[in-house]
Design a protein around this nucleic acid. Structure first.
Lengths: 118, 118
DNA sequence: CCAATTGTTCAATAACTTTTGAACTAAAGG
DNA sequence: CCTTTAGTTCAAAAGTTATTGAACAATTGG
């Protein structure tokens, strides 16, 4: 039941960049970064797409080594692999997150709650 | 004859990341960074692909705002848009270039010359 | 045990991206 | 003017990625 992850030294720069070069996945990473330390389950991201589609994007992030996914019951707890990414590509994640931080063009996790007023 | 470039504020983070997430284009950017200040014409990159294919990749880099291409006679002089990228996404280009700097998996501009011994 | 919840897998399709070669344009030099 | 050099454009083919819905697991709680 443990999902496959690359080890730190297998993480590839072009693959990480390509994986982050998708607005849905960049929005996921931005949200994870904003809640660092708090493990997130997939349903948090349902704003960004269907359950199936998220499963696809979250698998891409995991396979690229950007996130770690751990099964806890029927949930998947997803965290950023910040330490591994920082070791491998110093400064990259921080600059991407900072740049994504104020990007109005990216989809937003939690957009629905704001419109409803929750 | 002036080729179309986005202005600095039109440069999009996901597009830049997606464009850099291709090994050929990342190799081009790494090479441009290693020769910063020296304008490069396209034939410098023929190691990385056919003339047509390079024209395609160089257009992608230009359209994303990563490079600037200026026509000088029949040549195209290509430079990194470092100042615009640094203003827009501080630290991003440097961390990408640093990470690409020692990536053995990326194709190398000038690989042929080394093998021949020129 | 049954139902609900959480997420995956599969196959199909749609939509893009990359690569190719042939034909083309534009400037430079003889 | 004619040829060479440098690069673009176009259309086709190949390959890849994203999105969908239906069916499937696995765990939890009643």
């Amino acid at each position: 039941m443990t999902l496959p992850h690359p080890n730190a030294d297998q993480i590839s720069l072009p693959i990480v960049l390509a994986v982050l070069g998708d607005p849905t996945r960049l929005a996921i990473v931005r949200f994870l970064a904003s809640k660092e330390g708090v493990p997130m389950n997939c349903s948090k991201f349902l704003d960004l797409g269907s359950k199936t589609n998220l499963s696809y994007h979250l698998a891409k992030l995991r396979e690229a080594g950007v996130t770690r996914t751990e099964a806890v019951g029927t949930n998947r707890m997803i965290t950023l692999r910040r330490d591994d990414l920082d070791r491998r590509f110093p400064g990259l994640l921080d600059s991407v997150i900072a740049a994504a931080g104020d990007d109005k063009a990216l989809p937003m996790v939690g957009a629905a709650e704001i419109e409803i007023g929750a």
